[in-house]
Amino acid sequence: MGIRFDSVTVAYDGNVVLDALDLTVEPGEVMALLGPSGSGKTTALRAVAGFVRPASGRVLLGGEDVTDLPPYRRGIGMVVQSYALFPHLRVDENVAFGLKARRTPRNEVRQRVAEALELTGMAGYARRHPRELSGGQQQRVAIARALAIRPRVLLLDEPLSALDARLRSGMLAELARLHRELPDVSMLYVTHDQVEALTLADRIAVMDKARLQACGTPRELYRSPDNAFTASFVGGANLLPVTVGAGGVDFLGTELKVDTAEAVAGARATLCVRPHLVGLGEGPNRITGTVAEIQWRGATHRLYVETGGHRVMADVRELKEPPLHGEPVTLHFASEDAVLLPAGVSHG
């Protein structure tokens, strides 16, 4: 069952927090809603669940208009950041909650609870109370509880942000496995973490300032973002203001050779280069400057190079003799690694 946002607008007290969102999640697809806090991504998810009422527009589930249905008639599984496990119920009672609310026959409840706990690896904890579980275990129970009702849509609202970094990557793999085992379930995954979005999603919808900024596969958004916000938010990027010339661009008087096929000569544009694709030393497309900051990050060094009032970031393999503060250096990048974006307000 797919999800469709048809020009959904949500406003609180005249404040527009979601502006005419048009988005379709295909059946069985994992769509990540990625954006900073306050970008409207959680609001979009809550509109699907039925906890916020759109000021205008429709929400469709599997082709059916559910905009006016109360939450309890939408048949959606939902997992939130705080898990919201019922503290007065045991794990198995938590998982059975949705089934009992639907008056499912007892035998079937027992069987489906066991199934859901098995699927999430929590079968051994059925008789425990939520407060006796770790954060990661509570998360699994929350997922089991949402899956027990066999929803065709699963909404996940920042499900991993309450976990520490190591657990998070483990849970990420778990979610990917769940998605493989439940290929018919569409998932809408709200996150502010680009790694989660890039790892898990079939497609990513990038949100900012209540609006959808871009939507595409992780590869598309990473390799060829359509705007500066997407470029910097998905993966981080150097965004350099340039003027388009013939067969290249001009950056502060330096000629850089990049693909300008889609740009108009003389126009202002933004050049996007990922930091890890910027090299230190001589090469094509040279940029010179002085080292403003250097950070050792274990396997790599991150250089911030000051040039004409701009800072260019470069991630290079750990250096034996890193340059000193204020030392002049030369950076370079390959033409095919740069993407030319229309000039916009730089978020970087």
């Binding site: 949500v10 927090v17 916020v52 950041q81 705080s82």
Partner: peptide
Amino acid sequence: PRGGGRKPAAAP
């Protein structure tokens, strides 16, 4: 619950 940075709107 956190998220969205805003107080959730009251249910209908």
